[in-house]
C-alpha cells in the first residue's frame, strides 16, 4: 500500500466523521425536528407512557404484597372479580353520579359567579376575591371544613336549621344526606374553578359585540344566549374537560367528610383504588380498578375533544 493511498484513506475517514459531526451540529430540518422533540418525547414516555403500560400490565397480575407470594399472571381475573364486587359497582355508580351532579352544578354556579364578577360595578373585587378563596383551598381542607359544617352536634348547618325552626339532620348517618352534603361541597369547591376559567373567557369577548347587539336591538337575555354563551363555548368545553376528569377522580372531599360511609354508601372509585392499593396492598386488583378509571376518563375526553373539533370544522 502506498503512502498516498493510505493518506487518502485517512482523509476519507476524517471526511466521513466530519460529515457525521456536521449533520449533528447543523442538521437538516427533519433531523432537527426529531432532535428538538426528543426531550419532550422521552419525558412523556417516562412519566406517562411507561406508567400507563406498567399499570395495564399489573392489572393482569395477581399481585398482593400482603400474601408475600410472587406476582402471577392471571389474565382478566381481576376484571372478573370486579364484576362480582358490590363495592366496586357502588363506588363506580357513586363516582358517575357525583360527576353527573357536580359538573353541571358547578358549571351553572360558576357561570353565574363569573357573570357577577364581570359586572362593571364596585362589587367586582369582593366577588373576585371570594372566587379565589375556595379555589386556593386544598381539597382535603375543604373536606375537613365541610365535615365540621355538617357535623350533627357541632356543625353550623344544623345550628342554622335549628335557628330557623327546622329540625337538624344527622347528615353522615344517612347515605342520601351524606351524598348530598358531599355533592354540595364539591360543587362549592369546583364552581370557583369554573368561574375563574369562564371569567377569563368572558374577558376575551370584545365589549363592542355587546354594543353592536345593543344597537341591533337585542336585550340582555338575548345577548347572553346569542353572544355570551356561543362565544364561551370553547372555554366551557375546556373547563368541563378539566372538571369532569377531576370529578371522576373525586377522592379528598368524600374521604375527609365520610370516609365512604355510612358503610360504603358514599365511597368513590378513587377511594376504592386507594383502599385496595395503599391499605390492602392488593396491587393487581387496585391496578385493574385504576384501568377502569383511566378508560372512563379517556372516554369523557374523547367526547369533549370531538365536541371541540366538530366546532372548529364548522368554522
Amino acid at each position: 500500500m502506498t503512502v498516498t493511498s493510505r493518506l487518502e484513506q485517512v482523509a476519507e475517514r476524517v471526511e466521513t466523521r466530519r460529515a457525521m459531526l456536521s449533520r449533528l451540529l447543523d442538521p437538516d430540518e427533519t433531523t432537527l425536528g426529531a432532535l428538538l422533540l426528543a426531550p419532550a418525547a422521552v419525558l412523556l414516555g417516562g412519566v406517562i407512557v411507561y406508567p400507563v403500560c406498567k399499570l395495564l400490565y399489573t392489572s393482569f397480575l395477581d399481585l398482593s404484597l400482603t400474601s408475600g407470594a410472587p406476582a402471577r399472571f392471571v389474565g382478566l381475573a381481576n376484571f372478573q372479580q370486579m364484576l362480582e364486587d358490590p363495592v366496586f359497582w357502588q363506588a363506580t355508580w357513586n363516582t358517575i353520579l357525583i360527576t353527573l351532579i357536580t359538573v353541571p352544578g358547578a358549571l351553572v354556579v360558576g357561570l353565574g359567579l363569573a357573570l357577577l364578577a364581570n359586572l362593571p360595578f364596585n362589587i367586582r373585587w369582593p366577588v373576585r376575591l371570594s372566587l379565589l378563596i375556595p379555589w386556593a383551598l386544598p381539597l382535603s381542607f375543604a373536606g375537613l371544613i365541610f365535615a365540621w359544617f355538617f357535623h350533627s352536634e357541632y356543625g353550623v348547618v344544623n345550628d342554622v336549621l335549628n335557628r330557623v325552626g327546622l329540625p337538624g339532620a344527622i347528615w353522615f348517618n344517612s347515605p342520601r344526606l351524606a351524598f348530598a352534603a358531599i355533592c354540595l361541597t364539591i360543587t362549592w369547591k369546583a364552581s370557583s374553578f369554573m368561574a375563574m376559567i369562564i371569567l377569563a373567557g368572558l374577558q376575551t369577548i370584545p365589549r363592542s359585540l355587546y354594543e353592536a347587539a345593543d344597537v341591533d336591538g337585542a336585550g340582555r337575555v338575548r345577548q347572553f344566549f346569542e353572544i355570551t354563551l356561543p362565544l364561551l363555548k370553547p372555554t366551557i368545553v375546556v373547563a368541563l374537560i378539566f372538571r369532569t376528569i377531576a370529578a371522576l377522580q373525586t377522592f379528598d372531599i368524600p374521604y375527609m367528610m365520610t370516609g365512604g360511609g355510612p358503610g360504603t354508601s358514599t365511597a368513590t372509585l378513587a377511594m376504592y383504588i386507594h383502599q385496595n392499593t395503599v391499605s390492602f396492598l392488593d396491587l393487581g386488583y387496585g391496578s385493574a380498578l385504576a384501568v377502569v378509571m383511566f378508560i372512563l376518563s379517556m372516554c369523557v375526553t374523547a367526547v369533549y375533544l370531538r365536541m371541540i373539533s366538530g366546532r372548529e370544522g364548522a368554522r
Binding site: 398482593s64 344517612s174 360511609g261 355510612p262 358503610g263 354508601s265 396492598l281
Partner: peptide, 22 residues
C-alpha cells in the same frame, strides 16, 4: 395477612348497620 381487608369489611358494616343503611 389480609387483616386490613377483614377489618374494612367489619367496620363498614358496623357503621352501615348503626346508620340504618342495612
Amino acid at each position: 395477612p389480609r387483616y386490613n381487608e377483614v377489618s374494612e369489611v367489619i367496620r363498614t358494616t358496623v357503621n352501615a348497620v348503626l346508620a340504618g343503611v342495612t
